[in-house]
Design a protein around this nucleic acid. Structure first.
Lengths: 313, 313
DNA sequence: GTATCTTCTGAAACGGGTTTCAGGTCAAGC
DNA sequence: GCTTGACCTGAAACCCGTTTCAGAAGATAC
């Protein structure tokens, strides 16, 4: 491979001057510029990005941790991140975690080893305290309310919107409200907000028999419906954690010729639009954009975005 | 930042020996290993990945060009690529092209500048001849049948399956078959196969008034339905290029209280499962896996995968 | 006429690793 | 006793750029 030294030698100038030409810096005579450019063209030379990255101490790569790609939540945040990234000449590394703490740790180590300039956690399995420890090695942004932990974050405030949704359910006098969650509320901030909002509205904890965890796909929604049916849980409303999941839930009933309890989804995606059920728009594109902006800054602030309850009943 | 030289100096050994310890190579005495490890631990040192990449001439990063993330086609291939990549310790850079030839050219230049080890085009706007020129700078894999162009590829053979689908339409005696496409058949191999299969079955070109191009989302499908309605195109069957699109098409009719012509989708995604319409499974996960395998090899072969017509009528 | 500033240039240090090669020690084989 | 080979180690070259700094030349200010 031809490198900058070859260009220097062949053109008769030094590598510094060649570097100036490559980076269009000032203080190069027109003469030198032309001669050097001629050699560059002749040898079909382009600089090596890795060497440049090493020298500049920056890769223009940013890692984005996603538990999985299929869930609309992550796909939307990723979209917001990528549109901003492209505008600013950054590249995005997609890092699948599946909520595996070891994998997340490995990604943090990669940040530490300077494999990318910053790391965005769209969601995380590791405790935030653990993640925050790596802030000294590079910028980290998370997409959930970090509470008392001092870590940059862009997130949607779900609590108020969940309260609105549950208040509406209360006004409709639903009695047996089922809740599907990605993870248990001890592990997940989102689930915790859900439960807290329920408590705030109904002044009691939701019925344990009506909560199902580990729900994240259409199939899981289908299975959850089966579970409710087999355990005779008998919900009169089901609060699902995505539109896809709500659709899976619905489908189980159709397949088995059962009446469908009322239900709602989240994310305001295609299924809720098609089937016209209520949902919550968390404005995840915006979350992604803001998260990216934080990732390339060295600010340590927290950006909060309000979500919206879309009542289609 | 502490580097390998610091470790060498502080431990009293040379950088070569430190490097051997870091990379767990043989020919290091237990004594040396322990002393060096102690210094590494004390200074909280980790090697710099960029320096390593430069030295090894390899980044373990692979670029994947996608026109957009929302289309199920690309999301599925990407999934296949990523699951393989993780297994083999590679990272994936997601590069959005939007079929913009300049962007695609820029990604090829990034390959040339060694920003990543290989480049996978899930689809491309540039002519393959143009892309193939960059093969001398690094491995490139495309996800379409490259025909006579010599470029590594993993793709689904659509023609036979399209023939099956059209043959079935013919057997049902449909007369006015509409076709939605992502791009015109002069630009896109997929569209070209579609038209060719139609011709093979019906012995004539499809009616131009029934072909709509630039369709790639639910919204586009909705708009296409509007177009057919307003132009009184009156199709009796609509061949859509994804399940989402088919769903948008359907929704237009529901919203306007119109009878829905028969239709089918592609990709075997959630909507066709929910609404139980026919579709085509292109086994895109497998395409992704194979594409990745090619990307990390230096083979120049072509891997063909058969797709399946899923008749739900 | 001299001080000062701008333009242009190159040597060398720097970023931080890996790898080659040469040399030394020591034990086994004959 | 000598050869051979395995083990251990370090100097230096290498990967390929960017950046600092010092110096030379020419122009401008006073």
């Amino acid at each position: 491979m031809t490198n900058i030294h070859d260009i220097a030698k062949k053109s008769g100038y030094s590598v510094s001057t060649v570097s100036r030409v490559l980076n269009q810096k000032q203080y190069v005579s027109e003469d030198a510029r032309q001669q050097i450019q001629a050699v560059i063209d002749e040898l079909d030379y382009v600089p090596n990005d890795v060497a440049r990255d090493l020298s500049r101490g920056k890769t223009y790569n940013i890692g984005v941790v996603l538990p999985y790609t299929k869930h609309a939540y992550f796909a939307q945040i990723l979209d917001g991140i990528m549109s901003e990234a492209y505008k600013q000449g950054y590249r995005i590394l997609v890092l699948l975690s599946n909520y595996d703490q070891e994998k997340e740790q490995e990604f943090l180590e990669q940040l530490r080893r300077k494999a990318f300039d910053a790391l965005i956690f769209t969601s995380h399995g590791l405790p935030l305290e653990e993640i925050a420890k790596y802030l000294k090695y590079g910028q980290i942004v998370c997409c959930q309310n970090p509470g008392s932990i001092n870590i940059p974050a862009a997130y949607t405030e779900r609590f108020n919107t969940y309260v609105k949704a549950f208040a509406w359910l209360k006004s409709k006098n639903y009695q047996r409200i089922a809740i599907m969650q990605n993870r248990d509320y001890h592990e997940s901030a989102t689930s915790e907000k859900t439960i807290a909002a329920y408590k705030a509205v109904f002044q009691k904890m939701p019925d344990k028999n009506l909560i199902v965890n580990n729900v994240s796909t259409y199939q899981d929604g289908y299975q959850a419906a089966k579970h409710y049916h087999q355990t005779k849980a008998n919900p009169d409303f089901v609060f699902c954690n995505s539109d896809d999941i709500a659709t899976g839930f619905r489908q189980y009933h159709l397949d088995h010729n059962l009446p469908i309890p009322d239900y709602m989804g989240q994310e305001n995606q295609l299924p809720s639009q098609i089937l016209n059920f209520s949902t919550i728009d968390h404005h995840l594109n915006k979350v992604g954009e803001k998260a990216f902006a934080l990732a390339t800054s060295n600010e340590s602030k927290t950006i909060r975005i309000e979500s919206d309850f879309i009542n289609r009943s």
